[in-house]
Design a protein around this nucleic acid. Structure first.
Lengths: 217, 217
DNA sequence: ACACGACCATACTGATAAGTATGGTAACGG
DNA sequence: CCGTTACCATACTTATCAGTATGGTCGTGT
């Protein structure tokens, strides 16, 4: 390949390739050569942009954070109703974080890595904290608008996020748990934890089908 | 070291050493030599008892399953009241699975490994299924005895187990979440999901201290 | 006494992959 | 036109570790 004098997009391309490959085959089973190839270059270029694999992993995580924020902003664009905002964000998280197997692989691998790499751990701590604060704000808005009943938003959000992470993990052993047909029911369950039970939720562009039975496992 | 002609306890000793080291330093950062040394032998002996590292990891998992069953049986010995049985098992799980950092490290590492090793994954699937069935039985008993209100035990247990796994994960980034002083509150939260709210739970050998405030994060 | 099998230790092999050394090429300033 | 810098490719070094080869020792049956 040619060597253009300036390639300002290459760091992002490499981080994106790393994220994609990590999501597909895990972190340890993807070597630097494969990541470089995934971005259309070789190791020489990769190590020019990133000092080490750890640094590249952190960049892949940052890519993940940015994607989450971007998609969340996009989902909320033009939506003013507090309950519908909450509904949209929860269902977006279900679709993008729970139902997508690549996402489950990536996060699980990163979490295992966090046991050792304190920089990665700190990054996710901040991200989780931001997500938590964001959800708490949405819940408080919906409560202030009288759309949900929730005594303790902080506690409810904590429990909801724990349940979401737990579903992700359990899906590893019970693939049916996060199958596409469960999308609706999981969203209902999580919203229920936040005090927005199925009956009171204003469902966006959907007709209510109450015959849908959801049983875990 | 001597070479006694018979060492029938050596496989168990090696599996236990593996479990202990994995819980402390993770799986991939513990090599076969360290495991052998942890059991007081060397690689030669280890490979005589186990064909590969994967086989040893499976043995460490089996050790974990057995320990769980043993402790659960011990906790329930002589307890006949349905609600107290449920209470004891949940609080045992909180203490042994959530509050113990070694346990969190071991399970997270094994889950990441399960992405690749289908035998390990299948083992945990069976274990989780057994645990789930066991909890459902306890919940149904407590409901039949009129001690809790729970419309759908299967769904409630699934949600409770998800929340428990989620707490384990989140503790990695928020160490205070699974701190010793949270033990009581986490148990209350999980029992609440099962329909046994704090007010109706018969607390074993404890006085109720209602001034304990628990907020996630 | 001796052979044999269970058990264990030491030394080695081979593969993988992170990281490095080095040289090449394209754009741009002077 | 030339040097410099940014960017990229290839070849190499090196460390780690799972797994193997081999030989030694202890107990036991005969």
């Amino acid at each position: 390949m040619m060597a253009p004098a300036y390639a300002p997009e290459m760091p992002a391309r490499l981080a994106e390739a790393a994220f994609r490959l990590f999501s597909d085959r895990g972190i340890r089973d993807v070597n630097m050569e494969a990541i470089a190839a995934g971005a259309g270059v070789t190791k020489g270029s990769l190590y020019w942009h990133y000092r080490s694999k750890d640094e590249l992993i952190r960049a892949a995580c940052s890519h993940y954070y940015r994607e989450w924020h971007r998609r969340t902003r996009a989902a909320l664009a033009g939506e003013a109703d507090a309950l519908r905002r909450l509904d949209k964000v929860v269902r977006l998280s279900v679709r993008d974080c729970l139902l997508d197997e690549g996402n489950r692989v990536f996060t699980l691998e990163v979490f295992a890595l966090s046991l050792k790499d304190s920089a990665v751990r700190e990054g996710w701590r901040q991200f989780f904290d931001a997500v938590r604060e964001f959800y708490v704000g949405l819940v408080e808005d919906a409560r202030a608008a009288g759309r949900i009943r929730c005594d303790d938003p902080g506690r409810a959000v904590g429990l909801m996020l724990s349940a979401m992470e737990g579903f992700k993990l359990r899906a590893l052993f019970e693939p049916g748990l996060c199958a596409p047909e469960s999308e609706r029911a999981i969203g209902d369950e999580l919203l229920g934890i936040l005090g927005a039970d199925s009956g009171t939720v204003t469902i966006p562009q959907g007709m209510e089908n109450t015959e849908e039975i959801w049983r875990l496992g």
